[in-house]
């Protein structure tokens, strides 16, 4: 069983975590139906580093995790709150999936 290391809880068994899917940028409210359908149903399933959400279930804390889906390595683990608030991502963290936008902004937009 894998171990996930978090700043808040130290080393914990992966069984304490719940997978919450790949982090995606939600399209703007006025985006077309096709773009929304892509966002909701199409996954790239890349064998590469990807930002994902993982819930540490006993504490109720959501984490953003940069995981290499090819090697199953957890490269970075940060609180999802801090991840979305910005400041966590660097220019190198290009693993954030994006269905269409090519912008370099570091947090997904949300109306």
């Amino acid at each position: 069983m894998k171990i996930i290391h978090t700043r808040e809880h130290g080393a914990r068994n992966i069984a304490e975590f719940v997978y919450g899917g790949v982090v995606l940028r939600e399209p703007a409210a006025d985006a077309g139906d096709a773009e929304w359908a892509d966002y909701l149903f199409i996954r790239e399933n890349k064998a590469a580093p990807c930002w994902e959400l993982w819930l540490h279930s006993p504490s109720g804390m959501w984490y953003a995790v940069l995981r290499d889906a090819g090697s199953d390595e957890f490269l970075r683990v940060v609180l999802a709150r801090e991840f979305f608030a910005g400041g966590v991502l660097t220019d190198d963290d290009a693993g954030l999936s994006s269905s269409s936008s090519s912008s370099q902004e570091s947090t997904p937009s949300q109306s």
């Binding site: 719940v18 919450g20 959400l53 819930l55 279930s57 109720g60 804390m61 959501w62 609180l79 999802a80 709150r81 991840f83 979305f84 608030a85 997904p108 949300q110």
Partner: peptide
């Protein structure tokens, strides 16, 4: 429901506490 609330607010950053 509780997990979904925590997850969405991690993203939204609204000023709320959510207690189960």
């Amino acid at each position: 429901v509780f997990r979904a609330m925590l997850r969405h607010n991690a993203e939204w950053g609204l000023r709320v506490h959510i207690v189960n």
